[in-house]
Amino acid sequence: MSEMLEIVTEVVEKICKDLVTKETVDLLEEGKWATPLWQQLEDNELLKVAVTEQHGGANGDIADLLALYQLIGYYAVPAPVLEHTLANFILEYVGLAPFSSITTILLSEQPTLTLTNGRLDGVVQHVPWARIAQQFVTFAKEGEVLKLITVDLAQAEIEHATNLATEPRDTVSFQQAKVAAQVEINEQQLEKLKKYTTAAKLSAISGALDKAFQLTIRYSKEREQFGRPIHRFQLVQQHLAILAGEAAIATTAIENMAGALVGEREQFEVAFTSIRLDEASKIVATSAHQVHAAIGVTYEHSLQHYTRRLWAWREEGFTAHYWQRELAGDLLQVEDVWAWMTTK
């Protein structure tokens, strides 16, 4: 962990601890979000951690961002921190300038927007936080050419919708909207963009996984039945051991993936992490709920903030399903699996 990263995580963690309570996350249900938190992060320049110095940022790298996203997941942060910072990182990656106004991003396998003479048409579903964001970064097709574009959301028609965790995932429609910037994306860039967006989501997932695990340990010590804390029952111990295993697998997968990405030596790490965390999400949500029993399926208990995010996030962006198909394609070309997995 770089020194900067240590400071950043410490500050973000402190801000989250102070400002993200169960009630803050609940705000989403009323269609609100954590504006004071956003303000704090902005005031502390934390939204610019990975923006280059040239644009007034701290010049962090993708690993710094991913560490930040683990905290976003761990605290179920009800604000578009991931989307905004990732959008800016990606804009700079393709040579565009980052935004300081709230920006969201959605990259998908099959872009639904079309671009003609600088005008944008079409509908995109499940856009995170569109209702509060000002800028939108996404893919559009100009004929057969894939472009990354930015567009001011003031020109869009926005219909509110949410994911399973009640996070805003709006339907955004454009009719002859003017794009602010556009860049043609080549094959190699496309691969990178897919990996960055997937890695970002996976980091948030690993944070939520870890939180569900921590909540379960805590509850198993607090709750007593038959005159003893439930962690004394062997079948509960089995759940705790399973959770510990999944949490360890997830954290090390994320760190190995981040290392590969930052060292520009990534190969299959994102795909493997995606597939393995998809499985981990299922196992962790199941065991965490089972140990909490009835109290865990209530709105009042915070476990649902994390498990509902796991259920929602695993279906978003480039999913495990997508990466499995990619790997299937790769495997067709691989002659020796062992060599492929172990030799650079």
């Binding site: 399973l164 949500a285 199941t286 709920h289 089972q290 029993a293 399926v297 509902r308 259920w311």
Partner: peptide
């Protein structure tokens, strides 16, 4: 998905 946790409880 949202109701499944309760099945085994």
């Amino acid at each position: 998905i949202l109701h499944a946790p309760g099945f085994t409880i």
